[in-house]
Amino acid sequence: MNILNGSAYPNNGVHLNKRHRKAKLFSMLCSLVTWLGVALLGVLLYQVSSDGFKWLDLQFLTSFPSRFPYKAGIKSALVGTLWLISMVAFIAIPIGVATALYLEELSGQGRMNRLIELNISNLAGVPSIVYGIIGLAVFVRGLALERSLVAGALTMSLLILPVIIIASREAIKSVPMSIRHAAFALGATRLQTARDHVLPASYSGILTGVILALSRAIGETAPLIMIGALTYVAFLPEGPMDSFTALPIQIYNWVSRPQQEFHQLAAGGIIVLLAVLLMMNTIAIVIRYKTERKYK
């Protein structure tokens, strides 16, 4: 404490001790809360896997749903989810990224732009069931797409577009201004600059946002139920206009049955869902790693 003698803050020693104690307390509190979350997740995962693992086999993955638990499988739901997510990616990524690029790089910073920005942030917070209702009204009925994959994919795309746009904008914003200036000083237009420099430089950030958004779409149930995705499907969709089911719907369906076996089947379905999610994230990390290495 001697170093503080004669300083302009003679009481600083006392205050410092207090502040150190406070900091310690706070960090303890934070780690407690963090571990609580992790522990809860662990318990859930344990429960799910202890219930579901014994049902996980090739038969489970390659069979259609059935009234008999030991014959039931997840084939149509898994294939439906893969269809759905590919179509959502196909629709939502180009629109979302292009919108972000337009808002950040090409349009001016006018009032209209700010209004759109505000609306997009609000849309990101709208409950998914509302998107389901929109999907039902516009796609299923309005455009007469029926309960098809297209209707589902369009609805899900609406749901995740705000997330993709916001994440992409953040990634684009973080590209240093000096790169844009370098391009402009060479006589490049805004479009050329955005296409050849800003987009590649924000690639990994955009990818992260996209994967997060797609992961959300994979797990969403409410909008699909709303637009009337089927719960019992004993065939595979062959094109975008076919009706379909998806993993969360199949799980929901099994959970709502009285028999214990079906609950365990649902746990198996959850494991498959988690595996798909994990796979997507892994792919994202790999792509990120590769692109980052190229740029650094």
Binding site: S178, I179, H181, A182, A183, A185, L186, A201, Y295, K296
Partner: peptide, 11 residues
Amino acid sequence: GMVFQKPNPFP
């Protein structure tokens, strides 16, 4: 053309 204060090559 222009050269800036801080070198700003494209990545």
